[in-house]
């Protein structure tokens, strides 16, 4: 097949031998949706039509109206305002989880991939961590440590770490076999230089992709934790606990779950689609075919 590729390269007009990755239509739409959601939640405190915590016993479980665009919940609170404000914490937890798990996973993965002795220990630990179903682990951690934002982030982060470690380790293990790394050794380069300047850059693209997927799954996990009653306390609205509170009234007013569920799903969907787009643009296998 390489012969065919070479023939194609020969036939290509000069200067076009390396394709510049283009963002597809789907990815552009996803990015737009995500931007709208992020901007709306960020500026929510200044633009919400109602105080999201303001109860109104006279306006309980009302349908959509001009005053309450998405209606009200069982305490008469405005659903739209709650969703907008609730997004802040949900997104914050997602971003924090992605950053912390990528950061810790990167360090552990580098150590495991480069130092053979540490490898066995770290990977057994990761195997054990992966064996515990992540939702159960997160539930237990929150149940034991109390339902603060910090403990929710920790609880969602911990099960994500092995995924990052595995990706980083695999990249390092395959990159260290590359002849350019052996060339660096014979040029007298010391371990830190090889580790940080030759090997580390290889992990960037997979980490961007993995980080995006973790962001999506963390937002999802927060919602699930709240739904099961093991999330952030219900005094602060998040997408998850708005839906959790709506559970009891599902037959009377399914919108209490469906509207936040829709926003949440759209948000996660956009992030996942961006992850796919990033993978397609950064995947070396795809780039090879254009080289």
């Amino acid at each position: 097949m390489t012969e065919i590729l070479k023939t194609l390269v020969e036939a290509a007009p000069p200067g076009r031998t390396r394709r510049i990755p283009q963002m597809g239509m789907t990815a552009k739409i996803a990015l737009t949706i995500l931007m709208v959601i992020v901007i709306l939640t960020v500026i929510a405190p200044w633009i919400v039509p109602h105080d999201p915590l303001q109860m109104d016993p006279l306006a309980r479980l009302k349908g959509p109206s001009l005053d309450h665009l998405l209606g009200t919940d069982n305490f008469g609170r405005d659903l739209l305002s709650r969703i907008m404000i609730g997004g802040r914490l949900s997104l914050m937890i997602g971003v924090a989880t992605a950053c912390v798990s990528v950061g810790l996973g990167l360090i552990l993965g580098l150590v495991a991939g480069f130092f053979r002795r540490a490898d066995a220990v770290i990977m057994r630990l990761m195997d054990a961590l992966m064996a515990i179903p992540s939702i159960l682990l997160a539930i237990a951690l929150v149940a034991l440590n109390g339902a603060s934002v910090g403990s929710v982030i920790a609880a969602i982060t911990l099960p994500e770490i092995p995924r990052v470690v595995r990706v980083v380790r695999a990249v390092i293990l395959s990159a260290r076999e590359e002849p350019y790394v052996e060339a660096a050794i014979s040029l007298g380069s010391r371990t830190p230089l090889i580790l940080f300047r030759h090997l580390l850059p290889n992990t960037l693209a997979p980490l961007i992709v993995q980080g995006t997927y973790i962001l999506a799954s963390a937002i999802l996990a927060e919602a699930v934790l709240s739904f099961l009653g093991a999330g952030v306390s219900t005094e602060t609205p998040t997408w998850g606990n708005i839906m959790a509170e709506g559970r009891m009234f599902f037959r009377i007013k399914p919108e209490l779950i469906l509207f936040p569920g829709l926003v949440l799903s759209l948000c996660i969907l956009s992030v996942n689609l961006l992850g796919d787009a990033a993978r397609d643009m950064l995947d070396p296998r795809l780039r090879k075919s254009a080289r």
């Binding site: 999802l220 699930v224 739904f227 839906m243 399914p254 949440l264 799903s265 996942n272 796919d276």
Partner: peptide
């Protein structure tokens, strides 16, 4: 498949029930 990853299980469940 991307929808399957994105919509929370309980939302799917409630939509099915509905």
């Amino acid at each position: 498949s991307v929808l399957g990853f994105s919509v929370p299980v309980f939302v799917t469940g409630y939509v099915f029930v509905l």
